[in-house]
Simulated assay, not measured.
Amino acid sequence: MNSLPPQYSLQQKTFLVLLTMVTIGFGWILLPYFGAVFWGVVLAILFNSLYNRLLRATKGKPTVAALLTLLTIVVIVILPVSLIGASLVQQAVGVYDMVASGHMDFGLYFRQILGALPQWVVNLLDRFDLTSLAALQQKMSAMASQASQVAARQAINIGRNTMNFLVGLTIMLYLLFFLLRDGQMLSARIKNAVPLSRRYKTRLFNNFTTVIRATVKGNVLVAIAQGALGGLAFWFLGVQAPLLWAVVMAFLSLLPAVGAALVWAPVAIYFLVTGSTWQGIALILWGTLVIGLVDNFLRPVLVGKDTKLPDYMVLLSTIGGMALFGLNGFVIGPVIAALFVASWDLFVSAEEFHPD
C-alpha cells in the first residue's frame, strides 16, 4: 500500500515563506533598473553564439571571450543607437522650436486640407456634428501641436536625464559581461531550482530563448528596414525632420499589420489634398509596395516561423505587452504568449494530468 506524500513541516513552510519574501524583496530592489537588467539578459541570449565562437577562438578563455563579445556589442549596437538618439534629440528640438515660433503652423496645414475637401464630405461632417469646421480645425490643430510638443519634450528629457541613462547603461554592460561569461552555469542553476520534470523544463526554457531571439532579431530588423525606407522617402519628398519621422515609423512598426502606415499614410493624404499629387501617389506606392511588403514578408519569416505563433497572436501579444511594459513589451508580450501556448500543449499531452 502506497503511503501518502508527507506534508510540509512547519520548518519547511517557514522557509518557503522566507524564500518567497526575499525573492520579492530582491525583485523590488532591481525594479528601478528593470530595463537595464532585462536588456542585459536579452543581449546575452542574442550574442551567446558569438561568445561561444570567441570562446573556441581564444582556446577556452571565458573572460577574454566575454570582453570581446561585449566590445562587439558596444560597437555594433550601443554606439549606433547612441548616435541616432543624439540626432533624434536634435531634430525633435528643432521641430519643437518651429512649432513654438509659428514657422510650423498646423492650423495652416489643416486649413489647406479642409479647403480641399469636396462638398459631400463637408456635408457629412455637418450631419455628424463635426462642424463648425473652424472648431474642428482648432481642436485638431491643438491636438497635433500638443502631440508634437510632447514628443519634443520627451526627447529633451532624454537629453537632460543623461546621468540616469549612463547609470542604466553601465549596469546593463556590467551585468552582460557576467551573463556571457557565467551564463551556462547560471542557466543550469535556474533549471535545477525550478520544481518541474526535465521534460517540462527543457521545453519551456527552449521556448523562452527561441522566442526572445526570434522576436528581437525579427522585430528589430523589420523596424530598422521600415524606418529607414520611410525616412528615405520623407527626405526625398522634402518632409521636415526625416530622421525624427523615421524613428517614429521604426517604433510604430513594432506593431504588426499597422505600424509605419500610421505616419506615412496621413502625409500622403496631405500631399494629395493640397495639390502635390505626384508626391502623394509616389508615397502611397512606396509605402504600400515597399514599406508594407517588408512587414508582410519579413515579419512572418523572422518572427512567426521561429516562435510558432499565428500572426494574430503575435499582434495581440505585442500590443498588449507594449501597453503594459512600454518598449520592453514588444519582447515580453510574445514571450509570455509563447510560454502560454507551450504550457498548455504540455498540459494537454501530459499523461499524469490525463490518466484515462
Rank of each mutant, 00 (worst) to 15 (best):
Q119K: 15
I212M: 13
I212Y: 13
I281K: 08
D345H: 13
A155Q: 04
Q149H: 04
L285K: 06
G227E: 09
I190V: 13
V216E: 10
L173P: 11
L324H: 08
R111H: 12
L176D: 08
V263K: 03
V167F: 10
A223F: 11
A44V: 02
R198Q: 14
Q11W: 05
N328M: 08
L293F: 05
L283K: 01
L302G: 03
G231I: 04
P62L: 00
V267K: 00
V303I: 05
V301D: 10
G168I: 01
L196F: 09
L262R: 05
I113T: 14
I171H: 02
V211K: 10
V258H: 06
Q149W: 04
L180T: 00
M249R: 04
G40K: 04
L125P: 00
A342E: 15
T72H: 09
I158G: 14
L175N: 11
K59T: 03
V216C: 07
L125I: 00
T69M: 00
Y96W: 07
K13F: 10
F106A: 14
S197P: 04
V81S: 12
L232S: 15
L293Q: 11
L166W: 07
A241H: 10
D356Y: 05
L179K: 04
S87M: 06
S132Q: 12
N207H: 12
H103M: 14
N123V: 06
Y33I: 08
A57K: 13
L232A: 15
A151F: 09
A265I: 14
R153H: 09
I332L: 12
L324Y: 06
N157D: 14
F251C: 09
I29S: 02
A155I: 09
S317A: 00
A241G: 10
S197Y: 01
A116M: 06
G227I: 13
L237W: 02
I156P: 07
L327F: 15
T63D: 01
V17I: 06
D182M: 12
L79E: 07
Y8Q: 12
A246H: 02
G218A: 02
G94Y: 10
L70G: 15
P195H: 03
Q90A: 10
A225G: 10
Y174C: 07
V211H: 06
I113N: 06
V348T: 14
A265G: 11
R213Q: 15
Q138F: 07
V335Y: 13
P355M: 04
V239M: 06
L327K: 09
V290P: 12
V81M: 13
R127A: 14
T14H: 04
L204K: 00
V41C: 12
N52S: 13
L293V: 01
T210E: 14
I29M: 06
G85R: 06
P5V: 03
L50I: 05
A338E: 11
L108A: 14
M163H: 09
L54A: 07
V348E: 07
S276N: 05
R56E: 13
T215L: 08
T307K: 06
A100W: 05
A152K: 10
